[in-house]
């Protein structure tokens, strides 16, 4: 009896304490939440545009319903399989490849002692800052049939025939993965690098005193400590698995028709199809479709993570 009373007294005090502590915290959160509300939640009801037959006179909310008609074009086409497959496969490869390289580079950079590592870090970030069209020009400089660097300065001296790069499908998965890696590595490694720098150095000192090699230190200390970050970033990437980098898949292959089977993604298909139609409801439908699939996948992945590594789940 007495214990129960003590407990309730304690819980009351605890709640009060948390309330007193919570108010300044809520105040801290307020500007951010306000922004989120204005920027993200206020326009969100507009999602129903995807289900409407839009007529300007009635606005978005007054327009007549169209049911799922606006989604039809995404599924009824013979390309539906190709674009979905391309989008998903590329994203999976991107996630894996970018992860390996970003973590690898971050680890290397964090361990290098010399001053030149600052130079490395700055230089590898630069490609991220270039717009997709400029990147497509640069890729063209390398892959152009007549004047391209590869055809002229590598294949010709070796006595090989020039390759019509923009018409051969088989090279492009590799080209696109490489360009995506090239563009993103400087940016992607930053978050891992800053996390690694925050690790307690004494762990490494202790390990090296115990005779651990560099490789052992990396695999036994750094990687496990990085796990939460890796899991979080991967989960977020899974949420975007139905999206693709439009610039990469449309501009870099120069919209070459011969390459469509390997470069056509949901985003490029929608863009090409709607360019003349200018149909805002159909493009809204594509957005909803992509979001919905990403949402379901992330929830599932998160559930999985919660079973295996509960503290690292997103929510």
């Amino acid at each position: 009896m007495a214990k129960a009373r003590d407990k309730s007294k304690m819980s009351k005090a605890w709640r009060q304490a948390t309330l007193k502590r919570s108010i300044p915290i809520y105040l801290m959160a307020l500007p951010g939440l306000l922004y989120l509300f204005i920027n993200n939640y206020m326009p969100m009801p507009g999602i129903i545009l995807a289900f409407k037959n839009y007529k300007a006179k009635f606005g978005i909310y007054g327009s007549p319903w169209a049911g799922l008609k606006n989604f039809q074009y995404l599924f009824s086409t013979q390309d539906a399989y190709v674009i979905t497959r391309n989008t998903i496969l590329y994203n999976i490869v991107f996630i894996i490849v970018n992860l390996i390289f970003a973590v690898g580079v971050a680890i290397i950079l964090s361990e290098l002692v010399s001053k030149t590592k600052k130079v490395y870090q700055s230089v590898i970030l630069l490609p991220y800052l270039l717009s997709a069209v400029i990147v497509s020009y640069l890729v063209y400089a390398f892959l152009s049939s007549e004047n391209g660097f590869i055809n002229n300065s590598i294949l010709k001296p070796l006595g090989r025939d020039p390759i019509a790069w923009y018409q051969e499908q088989k090279y492009w998965p590799f080209i696109l993965v490489f360009v995506n890696l090239w563009k993103g590595i400087g940016y992607n490694c930053i978050i891992y690098l800053s996390t690694i720098i925050g690790f307690d150095r004494s762990l490494y000192e202790a390990a090296s005193i115990d005779g651990a090699t560099k490789w052992q230190q990396i695999t036994k200390i750094t990687l496990p400590l990085l796990k939460p970050t890796i899991i979080m970033l991967t989960l977020m990437a899974i949420g975007r698995i139905f999206y693709s980098d439009f610039g990469l898949f449309y501009q870099v292959p120069q919209n070459s028709g011969a390459l469509y089977p390997v470069t056509n993604t949901i985003d490029t298909y929608v863009y090409r199809g709607l360019l003349q139609l200018g149909d805002i409801t159909m493009s809204a439908a594509a957005g909803v479709y992509q979001s919905l699939v990403g949402f379901v996948l992330v929830l599932s992945a998160n559930l999985l993570v919660r079973k295996l590594e509960p503290e690292n789940a997103l929510f």
Partner: peptide, 25 residues
């Protein structure tokens, strides 16, 4: 200790997945 923390975190995360779209924004 923040009450409602889980919900707020989810609300934050939700915005990563769903977006009103260009026209409504």
């Amino acid at each position: 200790f923040l009450p409602g923390r889980g919900i707020i975190t989810f609300l934050v995360f939700f915005t990563m997945l769903f977006n009103g779209g260009l026209v409504p924004t």
